[in-house]
Simulated assay, not measured.
Amino acid sequence: MSYAKILLKPLVSEKATKAKEDSNQVIFYVAPMANKIEIKAAVEEAFKVKVTEVNVVRRRPLKRARHGRPTSHVPGFKKAYVTLAEGDKIEFFEGV
C-alpha cells in the first residue's frame, strides 16, 4: 500500500502540539487496516525521517441514543503516535 492510503491526515490539536514539543511525537489518523510496520514505513517514506516507535490507538464507532432508542452514530477511527529519532522533525505549519 502507498503511504497516501495509510496516512490519512495529521492530528492538529493542543495535545498533539504538546506531544510534538515534549517527546518528539507526531500523531496521524491512519487507515483502519494498517499495522505498526506499515505505518512506520509510510512515515519514513513520506517525510524522510527515522521512526523509533509507533503506538496505535483505536476508537470504536459509537451509537448515540435518545430515550433508549439509537438515533445516530459517531464513526470510529485509528490514530498512530509516531515517535521520531533524536534530531528529526516534521514541520506542518511552521512559518505560516
Rank of each mutant, 00 (worst) to 15 (best):
M1F: 15
S2E: 09
A4M: 12
K5L: 11
K5M: 09
K5F: 09
L7H: 02
L8R: 07
L8Y: 07
L8S: 06
L8P: 00
K9R: 13
P10A: 09
L11S: 07
V12G: 08
V12K: 13
S13V: 06
E14W: 08
E14C: 09
K15R: 15
T17R: 10
T17K: 14
A19C: 14
K20W: 13
K20L: 15
K20Y: 14
D22Y: 12
S23H: 12
S23T: 12
N24F: 08
N24G: 06
N24H: 11
N24M: 08
Q25R: 14
Q25L: 05
V26W: 01
F28C: 02
F28K: 00
F28Q: 01
F28R: 00
Y29A: 02
V30H: 03
V30F: 05
V30M: 04
P32N: 11
P32D: 09
P32F: 07
P32I: 04
P32R: 12
M33P: 01
M33V: 09
A34W: 00
A34N: 00
N35T: 01
N35Q: 08
N35K: 07
K36P: 02
I37E: 04
E38M: 03
E38F: 03
E38H: 05
A41T: 06
A41Q: 06
V43K: 00
V43C: 03
E44G: 00
E44W: 04
E44S: 02
E44Q: 12
E44P: 02
E45P: 02
K48D: 12
K48V: 09
V49E: 01
K50C: 07
V51F: 03
V51R: 01
E53F: 08
V54I: 06
V54Y: 00
N55D: 10
N55I: 08
N55S: 15
N55R: 13
V56Q: 03
V56W: 04
V56M: 07
V56I: 15
R58H: 05
R58F: 05
R58C: 08
R58K: 12
R59E: 11
R59Y: 02
R59V: 11
P61Q: 10
L62V: 11
K63Q: 10
R64D: 09
R64K: 14
R64L: 10
A65T: 13
A65N: 06
R66M: 11
R66K: 13
H67V: 09
G68W: 03
G68C: 04
R69C: 11
P70I: 07
H73M: 06
H73S: 13
H73N: 07
V74F: 08
V74Y: 07
P75G: 05
P75K: 14
P75E: 12
G76L: 05
F77Y: 12
K78D: 05
K79S: 04
K79V: 04
Y81L: 15
V82A: 03
V82K: 00
T83Y: 05
T83W: 02
L84K: 01
A85C: 08
A85M: 04
E86N: 09
E86H: 15
G87W: 03
D88F: 03
K89A: 15
I90Q: 02
E91I: 12
E91S: 14
F92Y: 15
F92V: 09
F92D: 07
F93V: 13
F93T: 13
V96G: 08
V96Y: 06
V96K: 11
